[in-house]
């Protein structure tokens, strides 16, 4: 899919969410769903299976999100899936998040951890990242068991890796 089309979809989703007045919430839910989509082979296969009718794939989305997400988020994802752009969903969502952050003069900080962060930890981490990068950040936390422990934070092109996985990999490399 071309960058223009991805940008067009992202702009559309962004405008809808903003119009609904749930931009922050929708943006966060879309981001989480996009990460889940990337990490789950089963979900990816189900949503990309051409043998499954689009309506059924949309029903899967509604079953999955249900009460866990706002109706706006569910409808936006269903719309993308129904239009056959499921493969581009992560790129569209990333573009939307970047657009939303930019609108608030923030930089997206993707944080991957093995366990969920508390609100206090998120606040302190956002402040620490702001201090380290010199940019106000829009923190997006992804729980990723492959990290094993610690945190990997990505702000723009800057990666701050404090994960156990990376340390183990370095140790294996030395071995």
């Amino acid at each position: 899919m071309s960058d223009n089309r991805i940008e067009g979809y992202a702009r559309g989703l962004f405008e809808i969410a903003r119009a609904e007045g749930t931009l922050d919430e929708v943006e966060d839910e879309l981001f989480r769903f996009a990460r889940s989509y990337e990490s789950s082979d089963q979900l990816r296969n189900a949503l990309n299976d051409e043998l499954i009718p689009p309506a059924k794939r949309q029903a899967i989305i509604e079953d999955l999100l249900g009460s866990k997400a706002t109706s706006t988020t569910t409808q936006l994802i269903s719309m993308v899936v129904g239009s056959g752009r499921t493969r581009d969903l992560p790129a569209i969502v990333d573009n939307l998040v970047a657009r939303a952050s930019s609108a608030k003069d923030l930089e997206v900080a993707e944080v991957r951890t093995a366990v969920a962060l508390t609100a206090d930890q998120q606040t302190r981490l956002a402040a620490a990242l702001t201090n380290a990068t010199g940019k106000q950040v829009n923190l997006k936390v992804v729980v990723d068991s492959s990290v094993l422990g610690g945190i990997v934070a990505t702000v723009g092109d800057t990666v701050i890796d404090g994960s156990v996985r990376t340390r183990i990999d370095q140790l294996k490399s030395r071995l």
């Binding site: 620490a128 201090n131 380290a132 404090g162």
Partner: peptide, 22 residues
């Protein structure tokens, strides 16, 4: 241990100044 690792990371990153991160 998870919490300790997270807290250490936050402290370490917080101690860094802009432009010195890796």
């Amino acid at each position: 241990t998870h919490q300790e690792l997270i807290e250490n990371f936050i402290q370490r990153v917080g101690a860094q100044k802009a432009g010195a991160s890796k």
